[in-house]
Nucleic acid binder design. Structure first.
Lengths: 346, 346
DNA sequence: AAACCTATTGCAATCGTGTGCAGAAGTACC
DNA sequence: GGTACTTCTGCACACGATTGCAATAGGTTT
C-alpha cells in the first residue's frame, strides 16, 4: 500500500505538503496542489484511515449492535440505519449480540476497543444486559443510544415505540369488532414486549372484557406455538381472536390455523404487532400495529450523530417515544356466532 | 480513555512492560504481570485497537458488502457471515452497496481505506461493478472473495450457486407434472439470475416444451408483477404454471393470484428460486429450488479467512460452485384442464 | 573473584497521518 | 537597501500501541 511518504518522494516535496494538498488546504500552492492530487489519483493512493484515525482521534464509524437478524424487523432497521449513517458520513460496524454467549458485552467491548465514535444498541428479549459497560462508556465520552425496552431508562439516551399504546389500540380494535374471548400469545421472558401485553390487557378490562389466565399463552418455540394454537381450538369455548406479540409469531399462527382447517378472519381473527413488510406478504394481509421503522431509525441515528458532534441542544439523557399506529387489514373481522364456529371445527 | 502510559505510571513501570504484561508475555515477571493485569482490570483499560492496528498492520476486520437487505436472502446471509466471522476472530464492517450511487466502488474504497483484512463482496443485479478496484485491491494484497454472478470470473475467488442447474431442476419438475404452458417472470437487467432462466429454458426445450416469447415476462416493480400476472390470465390460453426468478417475486405473484380469485396450486402452479425462509411462510408453502445458504456462507468466509492467513493450499483463484436442491412443497401440482381453468376465471 | 548466564525491564524506533511552528523565499513599501 | 509582510514549505512531534535491542541485577560457574 502506497503512503504519503511515497507520494512525497515522487512529487519531490515533503509528506506534510502532500498531506495538506490532499486535504485541499489553502496553505499549499495551487499549482503543486494540483500536481500532487493528480499524482495521488494515478497512483491509486488510498489514505490509511487507521493511521489517520489514530492521529485525529476519531473514526467516523458508528457501531450497531442488534440481537439477531432472523426476525424481519431487524433487517429493515439495519438497512435504514446504514443509509442514514452513510448520509451523515459514518461507516457501520455491525455486531449481532445474540450470536455468542457474552452477548452484548463482547460487542460493546469490541466497539469500544475499535474506538467507534458512537454506538447504537438495540436491546434483545431480556432488555439491556451490558448496563454497566454502557454507563462507563458514556461516562468516558462515547455516546450510546439505546433502542427498545430497558429497565430504569432515565439515565440513557433512548428511542422506543410506545408499546403500551399500541397494545391498547389493538385491544380497542378487537373490542369494537365484538370479540369477547381473546387470546394473547407471546414469548415468556421477552421483557421488550411486556408493555404490549400490559396496554392490551388494561384496555380490555377498561372495556369490561376479561382476560382469562387460560387465554394467555406463553410460547418459546414455533413448535409450542402450534401446540398452543391447537390446544386452544379444543377448548369448550374456543377464542374468536388471537393477538400475537409479534408479526413473525402471527405468521406461525397462520400456518397452524390453516392446518387445522380454519379460515382467517371468518373462523378466527388474528392480529400481530410490529407492522413489518411480512404483514403484507401473509394471506390474508395481517392487521397489526406498529410504528413505521422510519421515524424510529431517524430519531435513533440523528440523536446519536448529534451527540457525537455535540450539537444536540439538551445535554441530559433523552427518551424519544414514537407512537405506533393501528393498521387494519384483512385478518380481523367480527366474530362468528359460537354455534357456527364449533360446527366448522368438528 | 486510559492508555498504556497511564497504567505504566500507576504501576511504576514502563509502558513496554505493561504492553507485554497484558499480552501475557513470558518476558515479564509473573508477580508484576499479575499486578499489572489487576490494575488494568480495575481501571477498565481497553486497548486502543486503532493504535494497535497501525502498529501490527492488521485490523482483524472483514468487510461485507451486500446490495441491500430488503430481499430476505441477504439477512440470512449476513447473520451467518457474522457468526462465522466472529468465530474466526473477525469483526464485520457492513456496507450496503445499493444505498448510494457510487455503489460498490464507494464501499470498497472505504474498506480499503480502513484497511480491512479481507473483503466479502456479494454482487447485485448488475454483477460486479467495481471490477478494476477489486483487481487492484487483490493485486496489492487484500484478499477479496465474491459471491454471486460475475462476468468473466476466472481471475477471482468466487462462491456461487449453480443457478443453471437449479433452473433445470425446476423445469424438469414442471414438465414431469405435465405443464405445457409455462411463464417465466423476472427482473430484466438482473444478470445474476440470467443463468436460472437459461437452465430453465434449455431443460424445457429438451423436453419438447416451447417457451413462447409472450410467456417471458420482464417486470421491474411489484406493480408490474401484478399487471403482468393479471394480463396473463386474460390470454386466450392462459398458462398453467409460473416460474418466478426469486422467492420474493413469487410472494407478489401469490398476492395477485389471490386477488384474481385463483387458488394455488389448483388453478395455477407457482414455483420460485432461492429457498428462503419466506418460502415456508407463504401459504401454500412454495415449491422452490436453492442452495442452503449455509454451505454458501461457509465456503465464503472460510475461503476468505484462509486467504487472509495464507493457509489456503492453492494460490490460484478458486471457483466454488454449490449445487442447489429442488424442494417440492404445496404450490406445485399437475395442471387442470383448460376448460376448468377458463371457467374459474370468468 | 572474574566471567558468564538468565531473568526482567526500559529505551527507542516504528506504523502513517496531521499540524504547530519556524524558516525560506518572494514581494511591496518607505 | 532595509524592513515588514505574505506565501509557501519542511521539520519535528504527537497519536498509542508493539517489539528489537541494550541494560541491569542477581545468581552460577570456574
Amino acid at each position: 500500500m502506497i503512503t504519503l511518504e511515497d507520494l512525497a518522494l515522487k512529487a519531490g516535496v515533503s509528506h506534510s505538503t502532500v498531506s495538506r494538498a490532499l486535504a485541499d488546504s489553502p496553505l499549499v500552492n495551487p499549482a503543486t496542489k494540483a500536481r500532487i492530487q493528480n499524482l495521488a489519483q494515478e497512483a491509486g493512493y488510498q489514505v490509511n484511515q487507521v493511521a489517520r484515525n489514530l492521529k485525529v482521534r476519531t473514526t467516523k464509524t458508528i457501531g450497531l449492535v442488534v440481537p439477531e437478524v432472523s426476525n424481519p424487523f431487524y433487517p429493515e432497521l439495519i438497512q435504514q440505519v446504514a443509509d442514514r449513517a452513510k448520509l451523515a458520513g459514518y461507516s457501520l460496524q455491525l455486531h449481532l449480540s445474540a450470536a455468542d454467549q457474552e452477548s452484548e458485552s463482547a460487542c460493546i467491548a469490541s466497539l469500544a476497543g475499535n474506538r467507534a465514535d458512537g454506538i447504537l444498541l438495540v436491546t434483545g428479549e431480556r432488555g439491556l444486559i451490558a448496563r454497566s459497560q454502557v454507563n462507563s462508556l458514556v461516562a468516558s465520552g462515547t455516546p450510546v443510544v439505546i433502542m427498545g425496552w430497558v429497565e430504569d431508562a432515565e439515565h440513557l439516551d433512548l428511542v422506543a415505540g410506545d408499546d403500551a399504546a399500541g397494545g391498547r389500540e389493538l385491544a380497542y380494535h378487537l373490542a369494537d369488532l365484538g370479540h369477547k374471548r381473546i387470546v394473547v400469545l407471546g414469548k415468556p421472558p421477552h421483557r421488550g414486549v411486556l408493555d404490549r401485553m400490559v396496554g392490551f390487557s388494561e384496555a380490555l378490562t377498561e372495556r369490561g372484557i376479561p382476560l382469562l389466565p387460560e387465554m394467555v399463552i406463553e410460547v418459546a418455540s414455533e413448535e409450542e406455538v402450534r401446540i398452543g394454537v391447537s390446544d386452544l381450538l379444543k377448548l369448550p369455548e374456543p377464542p374468536t381472536a388471537i393477538f400475537a406479540y409479534q408479526d413473525s409469531l402471527a405468521a406461525v399462527v397462520y400456518r397452524q390455523l390453516e392446518k387445522e382447517g380454519l379460515s382467517i378472519p371468518n373462523d378466527m381473527t388474528v392480529v400481530g404487532f410490529d407492522n413489518l413488510d411480512l404483514a403484507t406478504y401473509l394471506s390474508p394481509e395481517l392487521t397489526t400495529v406498529g410504528t413505521h421503522i422510519s421515524p424510529l431509525t431517524s430519531a435513533f441515528v440523528s440523536l446519536l450523530v448529534a451527540r457525537i458532534q455535540g450539537t444536540y441542544p439538551d445535554p441530559t439523557p433523552q427518551s424519544i417515544i414514537v407512537t405506533p399506529r393501528l393498521v387494519v387489514r384483512a385478518s380481523s373481522a367480527p366474530p362468528r356466532s359460537q354455534l357456527n364456529l364449533t360446527d366448522s371445527i368438528s
